[in-house]
Design a protein around this nucleic acid. Structure first.
Lengths: 214, 214
DNA sequence: ATGTTATAGTGACTTTAGTCACCGTTTTCT
DNA sequence: AGAAAACGGTGACTAAAGTCACTATAACAT
């Protein structure tokens, strides 16, 4: 119980004491292993996940293609559930953990109650909604306007920054899925990038070189 | 003044009387001619436009390419401004009128004041935010997963429904811009669709045939 | 009336990316 | 150890879409 309190305070330094109490009273703390669904496209949910630690990947599936929308970091909550404060509808995208992730699941009924009642809560929700909207807009622009090569470079550098390490331990398969393309394409582009010395393809990981980390 | 009141009541039948008074007191009613900017990407805004009549097109520009995000109809407000209830930042997309449009511009300061104070206002804002988010997600999926041909068909049928008329009075140039492609591509596809009798290309407009209107 | 502009049609070409087939290596499992 | 699965590399092909160049017509402006 103590550790949750600490984490909550770290992630949300500005929330009211009473709200924090309610969080701990009504929220269910879950630790989800890496690579597992938090929410699956097409399902119904009854809780709002707030991320205390770890990383969650939001992505959409459409017509067999699966592509990354954006990431959600500690201290933020998933838009998907806000989407469902009002409508009880099937969600239109999925969320998976990228690594071992601690989430606090707040029941929707309570969320509705708190919303408006606690100004700091309202702020958190709205800001996250906004952030997600902007992330999505950005992803859309990227998808529409840039070649796979550019998007891959962008993806890798972001990934490196995110994990604060220039070694990307992912298979071409996984990367391809995130970018909504195929493995062969990723293979070809990494090879090309290797020729221009922007990265090195090791056995189990990709090493980004300086020009990409600026 | 009387007509605005009527329109407000039509568009927002559920708002409180006091809020309606405030709308009329602090809001500035504007009638914007067809094809004009409501908001331009990169600019700063200080008002929340609520649409009473007409139609507004939201689109993004990136790297010379300009593409349609979604439309905003009477009774709704533009997400872009909600985006700016919190942050004073340059907007990342543009809004233009598709036809003569009446908007009520609410000053941001008042919007912040009303938000929370009037439950119906909060509801309006949040629902619109959600709607816009979903529209954007939908657009993204379309862009990523479908061919230009499918998107064009989709675009035309939606357009026809929107204006309740199967004659689309747009140049290939304009259509291409909305879909983020080039004129030649639109020309070729319309010709192909004409061959399969899904539409007829007239001098100044495109006529959709029955199979597309089902 | 005539020059200007906007519009649409079209062929040829290039680029980009997705698909298929197949290979060799590494990892994992039993 | 040996089989199976995952991974990466590659060539050949195809499909989709963007670009360029040019034509013809219709609409508009002075």
């Amino acid at each position: 119980m103590v550790s949750e309190k600490i984490e909550l305070s770290e992630c949300f330094p500005f929330i009211e004491k009473e709200l924090k109490e309610e969080f701990l009273l009504f929220g269910e703390l879950k630790s989800i292993p890496k690579g597992q669904y938090v929410v699956k496209q097409g399902s119904y949910i009854s809780f709002l996940p707030i991320i205390l630690d770890g990383l969650i990947k939001m992505y959409a599936e459409e017509d067999e293609v699966e592509f990354l929308l954006y990431y959600i970091h500690p201290g933020h909550c998933c838009i998907l559930s806000f989407n469902h404060l009002f409508k009880q509808e099937a969600v239109r995208f999925s969320a998976k953990t990228e690594k071992e992730t601690k989430v606090l699941c707040l029941p929707i009924s309570k969320v509705q109650e708190w919303f408006g009642k606690y100004p700091s809560f309202t702020q958190i929700i709205l800001k996250d909604f906004q952030r997600n909207y902007e992330d999505l807009l950005n992803t859309t622009k990227q998808m529409v306007c840039y070649k796979v090569e550019d998007r891959l470079v962008n993806y890798l550098t972001k990934k490196a920054k995110l994990q604060n390490c220039n070694m990307i331990q992912m298979s071409h398969q996984q990367i391809a899925a995130d970018l909504g393309t195929s493995r062969e394409v990723v293979s070809r582009i990494t090879k090309k990038l290797q020729a221009t010395e922007l990265l090195i393809q090791h056995k189990r990981y990709i090493e980004l070189k300086k020009p990409l980390l600026a």
